[in-house]
């Protein structure tokens, strides 16, 4: 057994690694533009411009919570999924494992990147909601939505890591989209689930995005189904189980 080293070198290195991973993705327009712009654009379109005034459900408030979920899914799914698949293909993962890269750096750097992107995306959505969406919340509600969504990126990092351990770099963007977009729809992120058939509503408990959305709705005072503790438990178990499965796959020999 090798022990995990986390000494001064490893800590300094991890901070740099996180910064470079963020820069790498920020300079990749095919990632950065959709990840940063789409949630806000969709929210403006469907939550503000096309919302019927005086509708019973406050559309701008509902969609601010659910588009936050939609937004924070992307850095995990694409940053990890496409990133890991590509780096495995190109031999970069092997080089980094051969070099004395501290073992936590690889995943740690990407996690920090995903959470930073998530923070930016939620902030943009909250600013949009508070201004043009005319959403009014208590300070504690804003803060809990922010913290929830930054950590809410983690289950999708685990899922992305798992996808990256299965598929190659060519297939990864397609596979990620095939999981990302249907899950967003089936979790009620674009419109409430009661507009969809009952069977789809029943299935929703399977998707981590649905659980995070219920937590987001609860945090912004919009009820949400089920208990907060159950959603948190589901997301924690999902993250750990999927993350460990992915880690085991990646540690296997090529």
């Amino acid at each position: 057994m090798t022990t995990t080293t986390f000494d001064a070198i490893a800590r300094r290195s991890l901070a740099l690694e996180a910064r470079l991973e963020f820069l790498r993705l920020l300079r990749t327009p095919s990632f950065a533009v959709p990840a940063l712009a789409f949630p806000v654009l969709f929210y403006l379109l469907f939550g503000v411009l096309l919302a019927k005034p005086g509708s019973a459900m406050r559309v701008a408030q509902y969609l601010m919570a659910t588009y936050s979920v939609f937004g924070v899914m992307a850095p995990g799914l694409f940053g990890f999924g496409v990133g890991v698949a590509t780096e495995r293909d190109k031999g970069l993962l092997a080089l980094r494992r051969a070099l004395p890269m501290p073992p936590l750096n690889y995943v740690g750097g990407k996690l920090a990147m995903a959470m930073l992107f998530a923070a930016i995306i939620v902030t943009l959505l909250c600013i949009t909601g508070a201004t043009v969406g005319a959403v009014h919340l208590e300070v504690t509600q804003w803060l809990s939505l922010f913290v929830l969504m930054v950590f809410g990126a983690l289950p999708f990092c685990a899922l992305g890591l798992l996808i990256g351990s299965f598929v190659n770099g060519q297939a990864a963007p397609a596979v990620v989209n095939l999981i990302y977009l249907p899950m967003a729809l089936l979790s009620g992120l674009w419109f409430p689930l009661n507009l969809l058939p009952l069977a789809i509503q029943k299935l929703a408990v399977l998707w981590p995005a649905w659980h995070l959305a219920q937590l987001g709705l609860a945090a912004t005072g919009q009820g949400g189904e089920g208990s907060v503790a159950a959603h948190l438990l589901y997301l924690a178990v999902f993250t750990v189980a999927v993350g460990r499965w992915a880690a085991r796959r990646l540690q296997r020999e090529p």
Partner: peptide
């Protein structure tokens, strides 16, 4: 491994980082 250096046959380094950034990354190990 902190006493070795490695150059593998194929290593697709991140395209969007600069040479100085790539060096800083590996030097930090």
């Amino acid at each position: 491994r902190r006493r070795i250096g490695v150059m593998l046959q194929s290593a697709g380094l991140p395209d969007t980082l600069t040479v100085a950034e790539l060096l800083a990354q590996v030097r930090s190990y």
